[in-house]
Nucleic acid binder design. Structure first.
Lengths: 234, 234
DNA sequence: CCTGTCTATTTGTATAGTCAAAATGCGGGA
DNA sequence: TCCCGCATTTTGACTATACAAATAGACAGG
């Protein structure tokens, strides 16, 4: 007994999530949807407004409604540099690909991310540098089944995260934040002391129930933090 | 040039946030608001639906609309025990008040939280215990100006966080998550090794622009994590 | 070609109703 | 007294309509 505006909402959501309507795609005008669903404009409008409120579409007068760009590979909270909080603008950002190769998932790792062993993946390690200091070490798996274009991508032009945004439409994601002690290799790359506390962000992204990418990002704990303001009305 | 339904939304939001309408308070029925604002029911309904969508009110047929209970002192993400993730139910929870005293804010601390030095605060330290193991150390400041009832509260019955939920209506909050190494005192209380990585959650809560409480919660990094699933449609 | 204007399209806001579903709390019956 | 059923209130869903605001794209003028 779902209501009509809810059905329209879910219908369009599904089209966006499955990639049938990619980011930037124009959504039929309210008038057209009113015909396809055989209802009044108010009902269509309610569904579209809800989608807009959730950030899945962007609406512009006269132009129409468009599928928004996904934010699947963005952290839930902002990552900020503890030392230079005020300095918002003027960050010099860069990245360095440490390694990149195509391989097949081992059984242990496959089980950990809930995919079949033997699946082909691109394994990428990338160091993120802000203002000449390393601020994150990224270890990523990209399932070639879901993103075949990743096979021949070097990620030199744009880091894997941003690159994926342009390839995969919409998805769901799970974030986990842990505190860990840096191992020797990580400490060296991030130029911090061994055993220093680090923030470890793990994110797994799915589309249609299948894993797209799995990434671990390690931040130096003494320099970076996750922050977010939440007035209940937002 | 704000629209009418938006004005109604903000008007009611303000009443809730400022505490004029405390949690559980019944909101005038749509029909009554339609009279007070001199508009149609649809317009009122739109505003109330938006408030309901944001979790600020709960609506029930025939009964009416009610101000929801605040979630101001809840973490944005769930805190879960890494070792026993499956075991959702059946946690034995307890807490122990380590210290509690009334004092005045020093200049350094006052500056850090953006309040005037010399303001009276209750300073509470509390250890949270889940399944016989300490899982969090809480260091909290409560501004007596905002919550005078805290002066004579022992927090033995319920920990400061839950206690505050019943005292302060609605508020805004800022969360910060850091990774830190445990100092000697913290390590001993949490029964972990010195310098072990810990998750440090800092939360500051305001009401009407004035700080209500400021809290630092330290979790053992090897046993606890923050996790959240985010399908963009939620 | 470039620039300013005009128009038609599309979303935003609002009204005024109808019918449906839920559930509270009352009154009547055992 | 207690319990059950029903009437009434209140929210939920939807229609049909109206006008306002923005602006993309066509068109005219320099």
């Amino acid at each position: 007994m779902t209501s009509l505006h809810q059905r329209i909402f879910e219908d369009i959501e599904q089209k966006i999530m499955s990639g049938v309507w990619p980011p930037g795609q124009r959504i039929p005008a309210e008038h057209e949807l009113e015909v396809t669903y055989g209802c009044s404009r108010m009902t269509v409008s309610k569904a579209l407004s809800a989608l807009a409120a959730r950030g899945m579409i962007v609406r512009r007068r006269r132009a129409g409604s468009f599928v928004a760009s996904p934010q699947m590979d963005r952290t839930v909270m902002d990552i900020s540099d503890i030392g230079t909080e005020a300095k918002v603008a003027g960050h010099a950002y860069g990245h360095r690909i440490l390694s990149r190769r195509i391989e097949r998932l081992g059984t242990a790792e496959a089980a950990a991310i809930g995919e079949a062993a033997g699946a082909e993946v691109a394994r990428v390690e990338c160091l993120h540098i802000v203002d000449a200091r390393p601020n994150a070490l990224e270890k990523r798996l990209i399932l070639l089944d879901a993103v075949p274009q990743a096979r021949d991508e070097t990620f030199e032009a744009s880091p894997p995260g941003s690159w994926l945004l342009d390839q995969v439409p919409w998805s769901e994601a799970k974030h986990i934040i842990r505190a860990v002690s840096a191992d020797a290799a990580t400490a060296k790359l991030l130029t911090i002391e061994r055993h220093a506390a680090c923030l470890l962000l793990t994110r797994q992204t799915w589309q249609n129930g299948r894993t797209v990418t799995f990434v671990e990002i390690t931040h130096p704990g003494d320099r970076y933090q996750f922050a977010g303001v939440f007035h209940p009305s937002k």
